[in-house]
Every structure is written in structure tokens, then in C-alpha cells.
Design a binder for these strands. Structure first.
Length: 777
DNA sequence: GATTTAGATATTTTT
DNA sequence: TATCTAAATC
């Protein structure tokens, strides 16, 4: 959303000596006078609790712009932190629309991690790092953990590297250095060896001159705590601190902020406890719940006027979130009662037979939306887990509906991109052992696991890096044959490339040469697998991305912290993404499929985090519903294939938590078009309102008697036929039971043996069937 | 050292 | 069902 073109910018107002209050206030339409006053003029801690769609970003940018326009601080004296690079970009753009070129000076506007990295680069030596330190990503972390587990002789099956990495990450999220981890938590890993592994991990990082993401903040905290003078410098530097999405901060981020805010307490946090959906990643909703205690004298304002959605959508979202305990409590209300459409569509809830029927219904809905002159890009399908996207993609491809999947594997996390980056990293910093290990045999140079192990053993004893030691070991006869040749070539090539870079070769040219000379492109060109071409394309894209940076170092810094490549948003396409990915976005029409127990709320969440997990799932439901402006459509199914297994599933408890007056609920089996097959049913929410009423006639039939049958033989049915039941077996059907098949019509079960079910059909002469359902009647 | 095969294992995702 | 990893075989 952009600022209204006719409205003067704050800097223009300031320049014209117009009282800025009048001008600024115009940017804060949804706020009452006291709230405007608070946003613009509060000195000292301020918490803005902003419900979904109440203009949270606008509040933050307006405050920032006002501070600068009124010269309370220079742009470089403000610190503005966000969670994502996207949010940071948006914030900068919006601020610049308000204050013009002054915005260029916003040096300290960025993500927690990018700002910490800036600070750490400047003072790295104080925590024992060189300022050229590399930043490891998740993949590197896991590989490092794997090495540690192997070195410690821990069974990697029982204690996986991923688990250890997760544990360390969790500790870092809570700002726990190895000496601070509570003793009993050590037993979460390998009978008490968790802390030891953590210590080794940290020691290794120091040797590698590297940091992981968590370290960026932890090192900052140590830096501040151990160097009061330095901290004081920052206190005088940052006159105002602004924080976006405060509900997502973890303990480390909270401590970091608190240290920086100690100076003058001019900290303004914006957030919504009801939209905290990253608990599994260390976010502490408690931070926002405790704000007034943490920052004494804090002013708190609540934004509850929503300009985005219809009353039905808001009522649905409020009702569901109302089932959570321990909220700060906000009630969203419609921003503009007068322009509210009295005929606004209620939230639609539809129960369907299975995932395919769900995809069919949603695609039909999208087509009819499109036929009324609306756009594809105004619709979104928001799922709980990415595996749910597949069915929609298949259906959309079949119908030719243009769509875009948002999320999915990230560009810089793809194997080929990481390989290419590893070459570049190794050229820049020879001590980067993880990069060395990654590409020393990629493409194949005959350097296998055993040769690499020898090198690693020497490196560990010597304390120097693999790249430095390899030439020395090659002098000896320790490594022979193809491995020796391969290693020699590898080291020579890396050195040669580094010389070329030092000799002034442009880094884009160098990257192409590396891919060519290393044989990497060759390897992919020979590869006949369907992915090979995409991989080559991705590498071209990488070169393209490289060309946008002046130096290799600048590029690598960008990649390490800003792990996204600005995807062209493309044309008129339906958006498919996870609920997590949808935060901060909105569409006129939003589909929310898969509202089934165990799927959403997700079983894992409930198993692992119990009530806390359930509440977070519920917040996810709240986020999902509030993405919709005009229409929200929720669906659930009776049968779902999960990991290839058919399962019958119950509607999500969240369906029961919707407000009756604002939703319209219908459930059907998908057979209702079949003459005489009155298995479809529809009803009001009351029919589905209580758990026991899933025994409403249609539903129980689906639950108790339905099994998916796959007909394999015979291809022609003459009065009777055999069906192979794919799931549950024929035992789900009783002998003599009347059944219905959507191609063969009605019949009666004659025999059920093994996996075969014999059915007498009333009609004869049916044609070939590939796969279809058999249903009890 | 490379290739094949069997077995286990399964969210959400940003930095 | 699909994907990744480790053992088994070439």
C-alpha cells in the first residue's frame, strides 16, 4: 500500500512550517486523538498493541517519520528493527515516502540479525573473532554437529545432528551460553553430553572464524555486557528505538533490546500477541505480555479498529481467538460502520469427501470469482503444511488456473547454489573448512570419505584449516592415487582463482570460470535427470544475482543475511502458501482448506507443546481468517491421504469455535449429484456444533462405513465384481451390506476375503474403472 | 571410491 | 507416497 499521492509529505509540511501534528494525524486515520498523541510524542517506553488489519506498520513508519521531520533525531540516530528483510525493505520504502531523501540516512533500519552483524563486524575482536567472520546457515550448522557427534562417538541414529543443532539453536534463542545451560537440560542429549557438544561446537566456530545466526545476537549481548563504554556509546547513538512484530522476539532479542534501551528508554514496540506464531522457533509471547513490567512507566495503546475485513470475517476470527487464555485482550471492530456492506458474505464452511473434492470446490470457486470480473491475484489458498499444496497445484494445472507457490525451497538453499557459494567462500576465506568439505569432491575428483577423514584428523591435531594443511600433506605419501591427483588439482585451482580475483577479474566472470573449469557445469550437462536443467538455470540466476553487487564480499554478506532473491511477483496468479507465509498479507478472497483435527491444529504441535501448542495453532487460525477482506472460505474433509495412507479425519475443533450467526456451514460427500444417492447432506452449524453431532446421518455414514476401494479387476462388471479395498480392507464392510459405487451404482456385498471384496451390482455392463470409491449405504 | 538398494521417517521457517 | 541416509555391493 502506498501513501496517498495528494497528501503532502511530513518533510514538506515541516519545511512549510505547518504544525506537523495536523499533518501527521492524517496518516493515522484509525486512531483516536490520545492514541495519535501517544504515537507521535511519547518519550519513554511505548507498546502499541495492534490487532490484525489495524495499520501497525503505518503507526511505526509515521512515528519514525515524525521523529525525523521534527528533528528530534537524525535518521542515523534511530534504530528500527524488523524480523524479515522484506519487512525492513517495506519500512524503508514507506519511511522514504514520508520524509523523502532523509530516509537514506536510516543506517540502522534492518533485521535483528543484520544490525547485530553490523555491530559485530566492527567489534569482532572483543569476542575473539576476526571482522571477516563468516555466517553459517542451518545446513552448515547441521554438518558441524554431525562431525562433533562422530568425534564424540555418540550414536548418530539415536541422537541426530539435526536434533543437536536444534537444541543449540534453542539455547541460543534463550541467550544461554554453554556455562548458563541449566544442568537438567543437558540430559536432553546423549545422556548428559549435550553441554559438552555445545562447548565443542562453540570452540569449532571460533577456529573457523564463524558465527551462526544465534551467535550474532549472543556476541552482541556479551559485547554490551562486558564493555560498558561501548554500550554507552550506543546509548547516545540511538535516541529512539522502534521494533516491529514484538510478539515474535525471543529471549536473546529481548535482552539485546533491553540493553540498548537502557540509555533513554525511548523504545516503541508494535505487535499483536494474537499473531504470535513462531513459538516453535523460540519466540516468547511472554515478552509482549510482560512489556509493562519490563519497561516501567510504559504507555500501552490498543488499536482495535480494523479497516480490512467485513464484520463476519472479524467476528469469526475474534470468536476463535477468544478461546485462548492468557491474552492481553483486544476486540476487533469494523472500522467504518457506514460503508459496511449489509449483504457481506458470511464465512463459508464446507465439509467434503476428500482432498480432491476440496481442490475441486476451491478451483470452481476461483473460476466463478474470475467470471465475475475479479482477478486471480486477489485469491489465496492458505494451508497449514506445505504437503497440502500439491493437490491444489495438480488441480490448477489441470484447469489452467495460473498460480504461484510462495515459500518452498529457497533459492540459496538449493544444493547447486550452495556448492557454487562454497567455491566462492573458499576463495575469500581459505579457513572455511565447511566450504572445503562441501566442494572438495563436487564434482567428483576421486577424493572420498577416507581421504577427507585423514585430512580432518591432521587438521584437528594441528589446529589449522584443511585448505592450509592439504598442500603439506600432499608432500608426504599419506594420500596416494586418484585422491592425491584430485586434491592437488583442487588446491591449485582454488589458488589460481583467488589470484585472478586479486588480479582484478570481475567476480561475475570469475564465477562463470569456476563453474566451467571445476567441471561443475559439465557434470550437470551430463546429468540426464529432469532436475539438471533447472539446476543449470539456477546457476545462471546466481551469476545474475552476483552482477548486482560490486564486490564478492558484498555479495556473500548479502547472501548470508538476506537469504532471499527478489522473486518477480509475476502477473495475475492465485497465491498458494502456508499460513505462516501469509502473515502481513491480505486478499479479498481467502481459502482456508484442511481444517481437520491432527492436520490443523497439527498433531505434532499438540503432542510436543500441549496447550501452548494448541493456542499457537489457534493464533494461526486467527491470522488465516484475518487475511481475508471480503470473503473467507474454510473447508474440511472426511478422508485424507497423509503420507500415502488414507485416513478418516474429523473436522477441526476450530470449526466448532466459529460463531453461528456469522458463518454458513454445509457438508457434502461429493456424491449428491448421483440420482438416488442421497449421501450428501447440508445443514447449519448446529448440526455440526457438538462433537457428538458428527453422527448426523451423512457424516456418520462417511465415518463408519466408507472406505476407498480401488477397482482393479474385472474391467467389466457383469452383475458382480471384485474390488480391492485400498485401505482398511474389506472387513470394513459387512456381508449383505448395501453399498454404492460411483461408477457401478448400487450393490450388495457378497463376500469379503483377504483384500478382495465381492459385490453384486444391480446394474450390469459397466465400463472400465481406474480408481473410485465404494461406500456403505 | 562409486553405485545400488533397503530402511526409516515424515510441520510450520527466518536469519 | 516421497525423500533422504546408511549399509551392501560392484
Amino acid at each position: 500500500m502506498s501513501a496517498e499521492p495528494n497528501r503532502p509529505s511530513i518533510s514538506q509540511l515541516a519545511a512549510a512550517r505547518v504544525p506537523t501534528d495536523g499533518g501527521d494525524a492524517a496518516y493515522l486515520d484509525g486512531l483516536n486523538p490520545e492514541q495519535r498523541e501517544a504515537v507521535l510524542h511519547t518519550e519513554g517506553p511505548l507498546l502499541v498493541l495492534a490487532g490484525a488489519g489495524t495499520g501497525k506498520t503505518r503507526v511505526l513508519t509515521t512515528r519514525l517519520a515524525h521523529i525525523i521531520a521534527t528533528r528530534k533525531a537524525w535518521p542515523s540516530q534511530t534504530l528500527t528493527v524488523t524480523f524479515t528483510n522484506k519487512a525492513a525493505r517495506e519500512m524503508r520504502e514507506r519511511a522514504m515516502q514520508l520524509i523523502g531523501p532523509d530516509g537514506e540516512g536510516l543506517r540502522w533500519l534492518g533485521t535483528f540479525h543484520s544490525i547485530s552483524a553490523q555491530i559485530l563486524r566492527r567489534h569482532a575482536e572483543l569476542v575473539g573473532l576476526k571482522s571477516s567472520f563468516t555466517i553459517l546457515d542451518t545446513d552448515d550448522q547441521i554438518r558441524l554437529c554431525k562431525q562433533i557427534i562422530e568425534a564424540e562417538n555418540i550414536d548418530p541414529k539415536r541422537w541426530t545432528p539435526r536434533f543437536l543443532a536444534g537444541l543449540i539453536d534453542g539455547w541460543k534463542n534463550r541467550a544461554l551460553t554453554p556455562d548458563k545451560v541449566p544442568g537438567d537440560e543437558a540430559y536432553q542429549f546423549a545422556d548428559g553430553r549435550g553441554i559438552k557438544c555445545y562447548e565443542i561446537y562453540q570452540a569449532r566456530l571460533k577456529v573457523l572464524n564463524a558465527c551462526d545466526f544465534g551467535d550474532l545476537l549472543i556476541h552482541n549481548i556479551t559485547l554490551f555486557q562486558q564493555n560498558p563504554d561501548l554500550l554507552a556509546d550506543f546509548h547516545s547513538k540511538f535516541k529512539y528505538i522502534l521494533v516491529d512484530e514484538y510478539q515474535d522476539t525471543n529471549v536473546a532479542q529481548y535482552l539485546w533490546l533491553r540493553l540498548l534501551a537502557q540509555g533513554n528508554s525511548n523504545i516503541c514496540c508494535v505487535g499483536d500477541d494474537d499473531q504470535s506464531i513462531y513459538g516453535w522457533r523460540g519466540a516468547e509471547v511472554d515478552n509482549i505480555l510482560r512489556f509493562e513490567k519490563d519497561f516501567p512507566g510504559a504507555k500501552v495503546i490498543r488499536l482495535e479498529r480494523n479497516y480490512r475485513s467485513t464484520k463476519h470475517i472479524l467476528a469469526a476470527a475474534s470468536s476463535v481467538i477468544g478461546f485462548n487464555k492468557g491474552r492481553l485482550g483486544k476486540t476487533l471492530y469494523v472500522g467504518d460502520e457506514e460503508s459496511e456492506d449489509p449483504d457481506a458474505e458470511k464465512v463459508k464452511v464446507r465439509g467434503l469427501w476428500d482432498g480432491e473434492a476440496e481442490a475441486r470446490l476451491i478451483s470452481d470457486d476461483i473460476e466463478s470469482w474470475r467470471n465475475t470480473g475479479r482477478k486471480y491475484e486477489d485469491c489465496a489458498v492458505l494451508v497449514r503444511a506445505s504437503w497440502q499444496m500439491r493437490l491444489f497445484e495438480e488441480r490448477f494445472i489441470m484447469l489452467g488456473i495460473p498460480y504461484r507457490v510462495i515459500g518452498g525451497p529457497r533459492f540459496f538453499e538449493r544444493a547447486e547454489i550452495r556448492d557454487a557459494l562454497a567455491y566462492l567462500r573458499l576463495i575469500r576465506s581459505p579457513d572455511d573448512d565447511l566450504a572445503f568439505e562441501r566442494v572438495v569432491n563436487q564434482p567428483k575428483r576421486g577424493v572420498g570419505a577416507s581421504s577427507l577423514q585423514k585430512l580432518q584428523r591432521y587438521a584437528r591435531e594441528d589446529g589449522r584449516s584443511l585448505f592450509v594443511l592439504t598442500p603439506m600433506i600432499l608432500q608426504t605419501d599419506e594420500i596416494k592415487g586418484p585422491a592425491k591427483r584430485g586434491l592437488t588439482q583442487f588446491v591449485d585451482q582454488i589458488n589460481m582463482w583467488r589470484d585472478k580475483l586479486a588480479g582484478g577479474m570481475p567476480h561475475t566472470d570469475l564465477a562463470e570460470i569456476i563453474l566451467e573449469e571445476s567441471g561443475y557445469t559439465d557434470m550437470l550437462q551430463k546429468d540426464r535427470s529432469p532436475q539438471a536443467q533447472t539446476r543449470l538455470d539456477n546457476l545462471k540466476e546466481l551469476i545474475n544475482a552476483l552482477s548486482q553487487f560490486d564486490t564478492l564480499t558484498a555479495f556473500l554478506e548479502h547472501v548470508e543475511l538476506v537469504m532471499d532473491v527478489s522473486g518477480d511477483s509475476g502477473g495475475d496468479e492465485v497465491q498458494i502458501m502456508t499460513l505462516h507465509g501469509a502473515k502481513g498479507l491480505e486478499w479479498p478472497l481467502v481459502f482456508l482448506p484442511g481444517w481437520e483435527e491432527e492436520v490443523f491444529p497439527s498433531r505434532r504441535s499438540l503432542d510436543e507443546s500441549g496447550m501452548k501448542g494448541l493456542e499457537e495453532e489457534r493464533r494461526l487460525a486467527y491470522v488465516g481468517i484475518t487475511r481475508a477482506r471480503e470473503s473467507a472460505r474454510i473447508t474440511f474433509v472426511a478422508n485424507r491421504q497423509i503420507y500415502g495412507r488414507w485416513q478418516s479425519v474429523l473436522p477441526s475443533r476450530f470449526v466448532d469455535e466459529l460463531p453461528h450467526e456469522h458463518v454458513d456451514v454445509m457438508a457434502e460427500t461429493g456424491y449428491s449429484t448421483q440420482p438416488g444417492a442421497d449421501t450428501g447432506f447440508s445443514g447449519s452449524i448446529e448440526d455440526l456444533g457438538e462433537r457428538s453431532t458428527y453422527e448426523s446421518p451423512g457424516w456418520r455414514r462417511l465415518q463408519a462405513n466408507s472406505k476407498r476401494g480401488v477397482a482393479e479387476a474385472p474391467t467389466t462388471i457383469e452383475g458382480s465384481g471384485e474390488l480391492l479395498a485400498a485401505s482398511g480392507g474389506p472387513s470394513a464392510f459387512k456381508i449383505g451390506q448395501r453399498v454404492f459405487h460411483d461408477k457401478f451404482g448400487y450393490g450388495r456385498v457378497k463376500a469379503a476375503e483377504g483384500t478382495k471384496l465381492t459385490v453384486d451390482f444391480e446394474k450390469t455392463g459397466q465400463k472400465k474403472v481406474i480408481s473410485t470409491f465404494l461406500q456403505g449405504v
